[in-house]
Amino acid sequence: MLELRLVQGGLLKKVLESLKDLVNDANFDCSASGFSLQAMDSSHVALVALLLRSEGFEHYRCDRNLSLGMNLNNMAKMLKCAANDDIVTIKADDASDSVTFMFESPNQDKIADFEMKLMDIDSEHLGIPEAEFQAIVRMPSAEFARICKDLSTIGDTVVISVTKEGVKFSTRGDIGTANIVCRQNPSIDKPEEATIIEMEEPVSLTFALRYMNSFTKATPLANQVTISLSADLPVVVEYRVAEMGYIRFYLAPKIEE
């Protein structure tokens, strides 16, 4: 028996909106510690890892570990039917082939339940080690989204370079080139507007902008985004999900052929 009640149901709506264009089908893993997901995009170039810790739910019952295979587009369609301030409850029986989403309005005058069929999904679970990164950039998520959107009108790839001067986003395309430099800015009065760079050593990596733009669908979840870089390793683009967890996108770098 699984029963997860999330007062901030709007968070789950935002999570699905940030996942559904990148991943078609995925297994949500439910355990005593939380509700999580790991899935690759259809090209197997990007990976997304979601964790919503059990403590973040108002009520969290998970009698035994359960894996719920869901089509994320269909799940997003159902969650779109919830209002942003609705309380969302996810329910599933151990042997059931369906999951129920229950939406309650804050004053309890409207209660809806949507039942969705589950799927058998054969997915490869990758082991992601804890890594030391050469550079970690924390910046406003809206600024990062704006940069990725702007650069993708010029070119297909972005070179992210971190030096002690700041972080530089560069692209080139048929019409020309573009460089955007963001300097460190502690912004003590408004921490959500800060740009903080922790650098062990300079690093420069190339990534496909199409995926970066897809990751920025998570922008409504958090004011800040964290971009972690190391030479020849996937970049990690992380958005915090309130106090309860995170959504992390991993993207393999482009390499010289």
Binding site: L126, G127, I128, P129, T206, L233, E256
Partner: peptide, 14 residues
């Protein structure tokens, strides 16, 4: 030209 690497190359055996 630059080619895209698959993500599993980095994490499959870790």
């Amino acid at each position: 030209l630059k080619s895209q690497t698959r993500i599993a190359r980095f994490y499959r055996f870790s």
